[in-house]
Protein backbone atom coordinates (compact mmCIF):
# COMPACT_ATOMS: atom_id res chain seq x y z
CA UNK A 1 0.00 0.00 0.00
CA UNK A 2 2.94 2.30 0.69
CA UNK A 3 0.98 4.51 3.09
CA UNK A 4 2.13 5.14 6.61
CA UNK A 5 0.39 2.94 9.16
CA UNK A 6 -1.46 4.93 11.82
CA UNK A 7 -1.79 3.05 15.10
CA UNK A 8 -4.49 3.21 17.73
CA UNK A 9 -3.62 6.18 20.01
CA UNK A 10 -4.65 4.14 23.07
CA UNK A 11 -1.50 2.09 22.57
CA UNK A 12 0.38 4.88 24.38
CA UNK A 13 -0.79 3.15 27.59
CA UNK A 14 0.67 -0.20 26.54
CA UNK A 15 4.17 -1.66 26.56
CA UNK A 16 5.20 -1.78 22.92
CA UNK A 17 7.60 -4.69 23.31
CA UNK A 18 4.91 -6.93 24.85
CA UNK A 19 2.53 -6.77 21.87
CA UNK A 20 0.91 -8.82 20.41
CA UNK A 21 -0.47 -9.95 23.74
CA UNK A 22 -0.83 -13.48 25.05
CA UNK A 23 -4.64 -13.77 24.96
CA UNK A 24 -6.28 -16.14 22.50
CA UNK A 25 -7.93 -14.86 19.32
CA UNK A 26 -11.22 -13.25 20.29
CA UNK A 27 -10.62 -13.38 24.05
CA UNK A 28 -12.64 -10.97 26.19
CA UNK A 29 -9.58 -10.06 28.27
CA UNK A 30 -8.12 -8.11 25.34
CA UNK A 31 -11.41 -6.25 25.03
CA UNK A 32 -11.42 -5.43 28.75
CA UNK A 33 -7.90 -4.04 28.36
CA UNK A 34 -9.19 -1.93 25.47
CA UNK A 35 -12.16 -0.61 27.52
CA UNK A 36 -9.89 0.11 30.48
CA UNK A 37 -7.48 2.18 28.38
CA UNK A 38 -10.50 4.06 26.98
CA UNK A 39 -11.58 4.86 30.54
CA UNK A 40 -8.03 5.98 31.49
CA UNK A 41 -7.94 8.19 28.40
CA UNK A 42 -11.33 9.73 29.17
CA UNK A 43 -10.33 10.54 32.76
CA UNK A 44 -6.81 11.72 31.76
CA UNK A 45 -5.31 9.39 34.35
CA UNK A 46 -1.67 8.38 34.23
CA UNK A 47 -1.23 4.64 34.86
CA UNK A 48 2.38 5.27 35.87
CA UNK A 49 1.06 6.94 39.03
CA UNK A 50 -1.23 4.02 39.85
CA UNK A 51 -0.75 0.47 41.07
CA UNK A 52 -2.25 -2.49 39.22
CA UNK A 53 -2.43 -5.92 40.79
CA UNK A 54 -3.04 -9.24 39.06
CA UNK A 55 -3.07 -12.70 40.55
CA UNK A 56 -2.97 -15.86 38.50
CA UNK A 57 -5.12 -16.55 35.47
CA UNK A 58 -5.83 -15.16 32.05
CA UNK A 59 -7.34 -11.92 33.37
CA UNK A 60 -4.44 -11.38 35.76
CA UNK A 61 -2.18 -10.95 32.72
CA UNK A 62 -3.97 -7.71 31.75
CA UNK A 63 -1.77 -5.32 33.85
CA UNK A 64 1.39 -6.80 32.28
CA UNK A 65 0.58 -4.96 29.07
CA UNK A 66 0.00 -1.59 30.77
CA UNK A 67 2.84 0.90 31.35
CA UNK A 68 2.44 0.82 35.10
CA UNK A 69 3.77 -0.51 38.36
CA UNK A 70 2.25 -3.89 39.09
CA UNK A 71 2.23 -6.96 41.27
CA UNK A 72 1.71 -10.35 39.71
CA UNK A 73 1.94 -13.67 41.38
CA UNK A 74 0.05 -15.31 44.19
CA UNK A 75 -3.23 -16.93 43.27
CA UNK A 76 -6.26 -15.30 44.85
CA UNK A 77 -4.35 -12.97 47.18
CA UNK A 78 -4.74 -9.80 45.14
CA UNK A 79 -6.97 -8.12 47.73
CA UNK A 80 -4.64 -9.09 50.57
CA UNK A 81 -1.85 -7.25 48.77
CA UNK A 82 -4.12 -4.31 48.06
CA UNK A 83 -4.98 -4.10 51.77
CA UNK A 84 -1.28 -3.94 52.64
CA UNK A 85 -0.59 -1.28 50.02
CA UNK A 86 -3.55 0.80 51.17
CA UNK A 87 -2.32 0.69 54.78
CA UNK A 88 0.96 2.37 53.86
CA UNK A 89 -0.09 4.52 50.89
CA UNK A 90 -3.77 5.41 51.25
CA UNK A 91 -3.69 7.94 48.39
CA UNK A 92 -2.29 5.57 45.75
CA UNK A 93 -5.04 4.46 43.31
CA UNK A 94 -5.08 0.65 43.26
CA UNK A 95 -6.77 -1.28 40.47
CA UNK A 96 -7.11 -5.06 40.61
CA UNK A 97 -7.67 -7.29 37.61
CA UNK A 98 -8.88 -10.71 38.67
CA UNK A 99 -10.71 -13.54 37.03
CA UNK A 100 -13.55 -15.53 38.49
CA UNK A 101 -11.18 -18.28 39.59
CA UNK A 102 -8.95 -15.73 41.28
CA UNK A 103 -11.58 -13.67 43.04
CA UNK A 104 -14.45 -15.97 43.98
CA UNK A 105 -13.01 -19.45 44.17
CA UNK A 106 -9.56 -19.34 45.77
CA UNK A 107 -9.70 -15.72 46.89
CA UNK A 108 -13.36 -15.74 47.91
CA UNK A 109 -12.76 -15.02 51.56
CA UNK A 110 -10.42 -12.12 50.80
CA UNK A 111 -13.11 -10.64 48.60
CA UNK A 112 -15.84 -10.92 51.24
CA UNK A 113 -13.68 -9.35 53.94
CA UNK A 114 -12.54 -6.51 51.65
CA UNK A 115 -16.17 -5.78 50.76
CA UNK A 116 -17.07 -5.75 54.45
CA UNK A 117 -14.25 -3.31 55.26
CA UNK A 118 -15.02 -1.18 52.21
CA UNK A 119 -11.38 -1.04 51.14
CA UNK A 120 -10.77 1.83 48.70
CA UNK A 121 -9.82 -0.19 45.61
CA UNK A 122 -11.24 -0.79 42.13
CA UNK A 123 -11.72 -4.45 41.19
CA UNK A 124 -12.32 -5.39 37.55
CA UNK A 125 -13.47 -8.99 37.55
CA UNK A 126 -13.60 -10.72 34.18
CA UNK A 127 -16.01 -13.61 34.46
CA UNK A 128 -15.32 -16.04 31.61
CA UNK A 129 -17.37 -18.81 33.24
CA UNK A 130 -14.57 -21.40 33.63
CA UNK A 131 -10.94 -21.85 34.68
CA UNK A 132 -9.55 -20.93 31.28
CA UNK A 133 -5.81 -20.87 31.83
CA UNK A 134 -5.68 -24.45 33.16
CA UNK A 135 -7.78 -25.91 30.35
CA UNK A 136 -11.46 -25.12 30.87
CA UNK A 137 -12.44 -26.83 34.13
CA UNK A 138 -15.72 -26.15 35.91
CA UNK A 139 -15.65 -22.99 38.05
CA UNK A 140 -18.06 -21.57 40.66
CA UNK A 141 -19.35 -19.21 37.98
CA UNK A 142 -20.08 -21.89 35.35
CA UNK A 143 -23.79 -21.89 34.40
CA UNK A 144 -25.79 -24.91 35.44
CA UNK A 145 -25.81 -27.88 33.02
CA UNK A 146 -22.79 -26.55 31.07
CA UNK A 147 -20.42 -29.15 29.66
CA UNK A 148 -16.83 -28.39 30.61
CA UNK A 149 -13.61 -30.39 30.61
CA UNK A 150 -14.27 -31.82 34.08
CA UNK A 151 -18.06 -32.11 33.77
CA UNK A 152 -18.64 -34.08 30.55
CA UNK A 153 -22.30 -34.75 31.44
CA UNK A 154 -23.00 -31.14 32.44
CA UNK A 155 -22.33 -29.21 35.62
CA UNK A 156 -24.78 -30.10 38.38
CA UNK A 157 -24.20 -27.04 40.51
CA UNK A 158 -25.95 -23.68 40.50
CA UNK A 159 -23.72 -20.75 39.58
CA UNK A 160 -22.40 -18.00 41.79
CA UNK A 161 -23.95 -14.53 41.51
CA UNK A 162 -20.88 -12.51 42.44
CA UNK A 163 -22.58 -9.12 42.44
CA UNK A 164 -25.20 -10.25 44.97
CA UNK A 165 -22.44 -11.68 47.15
CA UNK A 166 -20.51 -8.40 47.04
CA UNK A 167 -23.61 -6.37 47.84
CA UNK A 168 -24.53 -8.62 50.75
CA UNK A 169 -20.97 -8.35 52.07
CA UNK A 170 -21.16 -4.54 52.01
CA UNK A 171 -19.41 -3.33 48.85
CA UNK A 172 -20.28 0.29 48.04
CA UNK A 173 -20.22 0.18 44.20
CA UNK A 174 -21.21 -2.93 42.25
CA UNK A 175 -21.90 -3.19 38.51
CA UNK A 176 -22.16 -6.00 36.00
CA UNK A 177 -21.83 -5.70 32.20
CA UNK A 178 -20.75 -7.92 29.33
CA UNK A 179 -17.96 -7.55 26.78
CA UNK A 180 -20.60 -6.90 24.12
CA UNK A 181 -21.28 -3.47 25.68
CA UNK A 182 -18.15 -1.34 25.14
CA UNK A 183 -19.63 2.01 26.14
CA UNK A 184 -21.25 0.73 29.33
CA UNK A 185 -18.05 -1.06 30.36
CA UNK A 186 -16.00 2.08 29.77
CA UNK A 187 -18.42 4.29 31.73
CA UNK A 188 -18.59 1.73 34.55
CA UNK A 189 -14.80 1.71 34.82
CA UNK A 190 -14.76 5.53 34.84
CA UNK A 191 -17.28 5.56 37.72
CA UNK A 192 -15.29 2.90 39.55
CA UNK A 193 -11.99 4.79 39.20
CA UNK A 194 -13.62 7.94 40.61
CA UNK A 195 -15.52 6.14 43.36
CA UNK A 196 -14.21 6.27 46.93
CA UNK A 197 -14.66 2.81 48.38
CA UNK A 198 -14.80 -0.77 47.18
CA UNK A 199 -15.92 -0.93 43.51
CA UNK A 200 -16.52 -4.25 41.84
CA UNK A 201 -17.06 -4.26 38.06
CA UNK A 202 -17.97 -7.73 36.87
CA UNK A 203 -17.61 -8.14 33.11
CA UNK A 204 -19.09 -11.34 31.73
CA UNK A 205 -16.69 -12.30 28.99
CA UNK A 206 -16.37 -14.85 26.23
CA UNK A 207 -13.80 -17.66 26.29
CA UNK A 208 -14.05 -19.13 22.78
CA UNK A 209 -11.09 -21.44 23.31
CA UNK A 210 -12.42 -23.39 26.29
CA UNK A 211 -15.97 -22.45 27.26
CA UNK A 212 -16.97 -22.08 23.62
CA UNK A 213 -15.32 -25.33 22.63
CA UNK A 214 -16.73 -27.53 25.42
CA UNK A 215 -20.08 -25.97 26.31
CA UNK A 216 -21.21 -24.33 23.08
CA UNK A 217 -19.29 -26.41 20.50
CA UNK A 218 -18.05 -23.33 18.67
CA UNK A 219 -14.82 -21.39 18.53
CA UNK A 220 -16.36 -18.22 17.14
CA UNK A 221 -16.06 -15.38 19.70
CA UNK A 222 -19.14 -13.61 18.33
CA UNK A 223 -21.30 -16.73 18.81
CA UNK A 224 -20.13 -17.01 22.43
CA UNK A 225 -20.86 -13.30 22.85
CA UNK A 226 -24.37 -13.82 21.48
CA UNK A 227 -24.86 -16.69 23.93
CA UNK A 228 -23.86 -14.38 26.79
CA UNK A 229 -26.21 -11.67 25.56
CA UNK A 230 -29.12 -14.10 25.31
CA UNK A 231 -28.43 -15.30 28.89
CA UNK A 232 -28.40 -11.85 30.49
CA UNK A 233 -31.01 -9.12 30.87
CA UNK A 234 -30.98 -5.47 31.91
CA UNK A 235 -32.01 -5.15 35.53
CA UNK A 236 -34.59 -2.48 34.56
CA UNK A 237 -36.46 -5.17 32.61
CA UNK A 238 -36.73 -7.53 35.57
CA UNK A 239 -40.20 -6.28 36.64
CA UNK A 240 -41.62 -6.99 33.19
CA UNK A 241 -40.17 -10.51 32.99
CA UNK A 242 -41.63 -13.67 34.47
CA UNK A 243 -39.64 -15.89 36.80
CA UNK A 244 -39.38 -18.53 34.06
CA UNK A 245 -37.79 -16.04 31.68
CA UNK A 246 -35.29 -14.95 34.32
CA UNK A 247 -34.26 -18.45 35.32
CA UNK A 248 -30.57 -19.10 34.80
CA UNK A 249 -29.93 -15.57 33.52
CA UNK A 250 -27.84 -12.80 35.04
CA UNK A 251 -29.11 -9.23 35.49
CA UNK A 252 -26.92 -6.42 34.11
CA UNK A 253 -26.56 -2.86 35.32
CA UNK A 254 -25.45 -0.72 38.23
CA UNK A 255 -26.74 -2.39 41.36
CA UNK A 256 -25.43 -0.11 44.06
CA UNK A 257 -23.36 3.09 44.29
CA UNK A 258 -23.24 4.75 47.69
CA UNK A 259 -20.90 6.62 49.96
CA UNK A 260 -19.67 4.69 53.00
CA UNK A 261 -16.78 5.09 55.43
CA UNK A 262 -13.57 3.77 53.86
CA UNK A 263 -11.24 1.38 55.66
CA UNK A 264 -7.88 2.89 56.62
CA UNK A 265 -6.38 0.48 59.09
CA UNK A 266 -9.02 1.37 61.63
CA UNK A 267 -12.19 3.38 61.37
CA UNK A 268 -12.05 4.51 64.99
CA UNK A 269 -10.89 8.07 65.63
CA UNK A 270 -8.04 8.35 68.12
Amino acid sequence: MGEELKINPLRKFLRKEKLPHFFCAGCGCGQVLNYYTQALDALNMDPEKMLHIGGVGCTARIPIYLKTDMFHGVHGRTLAWATGVKMTQPDLPVVIFAGDGDLVSIGGNHMIQSCRRNLDVTVVMVNNMNFAMTGGQVAPTTPEESVTMTTPYGSGEPRFDVCRLAMAAGASHVERWTTAQPVQCKLAMERALQHKGFSLIEIVSQCPTHYGRYALKTGDPVKVMNYIQSNTYAKEQSERMTDEEKEGKLPLGMFICEEKPVYAGTNMAF
Partner: peptide, 15 residues
Protein backbone atom coordinates in the same frame (compact mmCIF):
# COMPACT_ATOMS: atom_id res chain seq x y z
CA UNK B 1 -15.67 2.97 15.55
CA UNK B 2 -17.24 -0.22 16.84
CA UNK B 3 -14.30 -2.22 15.48
CA UNK B 4 -11.74 0.08 17.08
CA UNK B 5 -13.50 -0.02 20.45
CA UNK B 6 -14.04 -3.78 20.46
CA UNK B 7 -10.86 -5.12 18.85
CA UNK B 8 -9.16 -7.26 21.52
CA UNK B 9 -5.73 -6.74 19.96
CA UNK B 10 -5.58 -2.93 19.47
CA UNK B 11 -4.98 -3.62 15.79
CA UNK B 12 -7.60 -1.29 14.28
CA UNK B 13 -7.59 2.50 14.13
CA UNK B 14 -10.38 4.45 12.43
CA UNK B 15 -9.41 7.99 11.52
Amino acid sequence: KKCEKMCPDFAIYVE
